[in-house]
Nucleic acid binder design. Sequence first.
DNA 1: ACAAAAGTGTTGCGGCTACACCCATGG
DNA 2: CCATGGGTGTAGCCGCAACACTTTTGT
Lengths: 235, 235
Amino acid sequence: MNKTTPAIKQDIKVSVDAIVFGYNQENGISVLLIKRKIDPFADQWALPGGFVHNEESLEEAVARELKEEAGVSINYLEQLFTFGKPDRDPRTRIISVAYFGLVKSADFSLFASTDASEAAWFNIYELPPLAFDHQEIVGKAIARLRAKITYEPIGFELLDARFVFSDLEQLYMKLLGHNIDRRNFKRKVMSLGLVIELDEKAPSIGAGRPGNLYSFDYEKYKQLKVNGFDLNKLL
Amino acid sequence: MNKTTPAIKQDIKVSVDAIVFGYNQENGISVLLIKRKIDPFADQWALPGGFVHNEESLEEAVARELKEEAGVSINYLEQLFTFGKPDRDPRTRIISVAYFGLVKSADFSLFASTDASEAAWFNIYELPPLAFDHQEIVGKAIARLRAKITYEPIGFELLDARFVFSDLEQLYMKLLGHNIDRRNFKRKVMSLGLVIELDEKAPSIGAGRPGNLYSFDYEKYKQLKVNGFDLNKLL
DNA sequence: ACAAAAGTGTTGCGGCTACACCCATGG
DNA sequence: CCATGGGTGTAGCCGCAACACTTTTGT
């Protein structure tokens, strides 16, 4: 915002990019990418995104692009960072507002099985070369995810509405890259009061005792958020 | 970033805004504001900022505007958030990338005493009405400052190169809004190893024993940052 | 000598880590 | 009946919060 109008005409375009994470047991933590069809970087993988329309908000733009390009609908979205180096796009100056999104495991699994050929999920530890500065953007998003999961219950956004405790455990371990004690982890999570135990058992697959099903308590989460709460490090 | 060029022409401008905090004993924690000269919101207080030039990075734009509008040079700067609601500016669509900056106490005090009439510092607890959505932006910046001070040593960026321990203490108390134990606070801060005690005493003002001077160890900070370090909550 | 501010040390409680045992299911 | 994974309990250590005394200066 300025007090004077700029002397020279501004020639900058605004786009949004989405870094969407999904998770399931087989594929681990994954990012949604699309294959570019035109130059520059034709046939390379890139983040879904596109130019912001004149009348829509940034969040609307992200949601629209995700639907158009990948048919995905998101259940958690927050702004990540704005990338604005003058030469980040070889064509012209483009400033991109990057958003960080999460999809439920059910949606992710559904989509992962189809081969829409244009869009695909990649495990965060096995990413292909990316167009533009998208490598850097994804790196920042992963760092955010890793940090955020230790102080906000976003892990639940990646699971199904009803989940087995070991799923949550594994998600944390895969993301943080080290083992965590099963029992201490459960005690900590339960002590937050955000997870409720259901009166239902998971179907048993193979050996071992079937676990209970749990679900995330959104109501309680909202309450706690208002009063301001500190999650202890979940390690 | 999109695979297709947008059908309709994009008509959005990009600006940067700066939320710069300063601190000294008398005035407390303050924000730098400028008085607008033209409509809309003529004669109202607003954040320093302005349109991004075609060839400069976002950070360069912030630095330039701060120099032009207030003659201030910053010693810490990070991106805060991007505000992009379609109607946040009554004239036309403007997306603003907000930056969060800190100035040293010495620079702040120097500037606070002059009355440049255009730019002025306001205590964060006594802000005037602000133009546009700048109230919201400042709110977000204060929240960030308050949160960040508990896990990163940005408090030092607001003090002089050499400072008395009670200054740091008071800064924290003023920002967090509650008392903290002098002795525990000092022990925690010193245990981080980021503060070194100098062989110099502060001049004594009025009653009481004069304190030692301390300084922030940037070298050690960089080292720790590389290895990844967790600051305990400083309460 | 007294007030005011800075420096330093100690103790006790709570929370976290590390660990072991029991339970339910499939093969 | 054995392997595999889920559920629960406990002891000991460490860290942090709460707190008191001494030191140095001005008046």
